[in-house]
Design a binder for these strands. Structure first.
Lengths: 233, 233
DNA sequence: CGGATGCTACGGTGCGGGCCGAAGCATGAG
DNA sequence: CTCATGCTTCGGCCCGCACCGTAGCATCCG
């Protein structure tokens, strides 16, 4: 069966440490240059170039050329979901084998980070928990449902909830995403992405340079507590 | 970052053609012996033994020993989801590159097959479409919702819908799963799995030997048409 | 128009790992 | 007990590919 070979090819592409590092650094949804990706993978630019060519040929990455730079990004949300699902399995594996060593960089990532287009880490999990605890959302293992009070809450903080629901055929755009650090679900899907974008737009969180970690601003501290009852150190 | 290495290790395990073949043959949720998996991977038993040891050590497979046989199965639904998501990406890749060659075996798989624990292929997609068209279900890109009429319909065909909803905390156990052959969503999640199990229990479908393809029985033809308005050649 | 920068193409090296044959343990059958 | 079956371990072969150094194109700057 030919589909089997293609499957193995895709998985093998993600299975090289250097390429995995590059793909990881693209998980925040931004586009990076080949040099930046080389650093992310811990390899020289010429080696990275070869890897990138393969990833593009396989349809995992898309590229925008601007002048002498080439900005690479994940080709589709499907690729990001694949990465997430592999991370979930990897997380299962490590925790059952041995306690993993966590560095200082990991600490920031565990506190709050972006997961492709939505929020993850303790912040992401805390927000999801708060929404569920307040009766604003129901979250199963495979899907989530925003209640009327949840729609009202998101509207109160300034999100265009109606617009989100009007866009697609299905009414539910809310999906749990298993957090690899907290091992609990956080909020993904279109609503998760919109909430994340809103937090950036309102200045509640800010990207840290060169990492997927995000910092919570003082304003964010205040608003997360007011709106969701969430307090993070 | 250590998590990166673990990620690459998991992906690399899935990225070997022989191992990919073995994992694929386990996607119907059944447990197979080492010899059967060796055939599935197109390798000798001693080579398969090494591969299986790695897959078990990494937490991708679980094993039940019965007498002199060892039955291997996917360790968790998370592994099956990882496989599905890689297949989705692989499907994207091939279709954008070149029309794939389809063999006669593929034809049966495309008509109707199991996808870990639920139905896929034309049958799976047709059922999902029928449920949506009849107003029994709403299906977005990330989640699905069963309507009241949908619950009634499933109850009518003899499923214990109440029991499903009582089991978990979240109320929605309905999830779309992108079909790699039809490139359209079909019904997964707990409800998808229960519907599939019900179809087997009632004798509407039957497993074909040595493949994930399923055959629709004459009784199934009749009932699928009566209950869902679905007719398949 | 040079010179710097970002990226790619090519050639050669070295290591990891997939593969099988042969042999060694278990379990079950006769 | 003896043989057959299912699975694993060991040893050696060899292919594939990740890697880098060098060199060749593009693009922007002064």
């Amino acid at each position: 069966m030919a589909s089997n070979a293609v499957f193995a090819e895709i998985a093998a592409l993600a299975g090289d440490p250097a390429r995995a590092g590059m793909l990881h650094s693209l998980m925040d949804g931004r586009a990076l240059t080949a040099s930046e990706l080389a650093r992310a993978g811990g390899i020289t630019p010429q080696t990275a170039s070869g890897h990138l060519a393969k990833l593009i040929a396989a349809g995992l990455l898309a590229v925008d050329r601007q002048g002498r730079h080439r900005y690479h990004r994940l080709a589709s949300p499907a690729v990001a979901r694949m990465m997430e699902s592999i991370m979930a399995v990897a997380s299962d594996a490590t925790s059952s084998r041995r306690r993993i060593v966590v560095g200082p960089r990991d600490a920031a990532l565990r506190a709050a980070r972006t997961c492709y287009d939505h929020l993850a880490g303790r912040l992401g999990v805390a927000l999801a928990d708060a929404l569920v605890a307040g009766g604003h959302m129901e979250l199963g293992s495979d899907a989530g449902l925003l209640t009327d009070s949840g729609m009202a809450l998101l509207g109160d903080i300034g999100m265009d909830v109606e617009g989100l629901f009007a866009r697609r055929t299905g009414r539910l755009l809310c999906r749990p995403c298993l957090d690899w650090s907290e091992r609990r679900p956080h909020l993904a899907g279109t609503i998760g992405a919109a909430l994340c974008a809103h937090c950036f737009a309102e200045g509640w969180i800010r990207r840290s340079e060169g990492t997927r970690a995000v910092a919570i601003t003082p304003k964010g501290q205040l608003r997360f507590r007011q709106a969701f009852g969430v307090t993070l150190s």
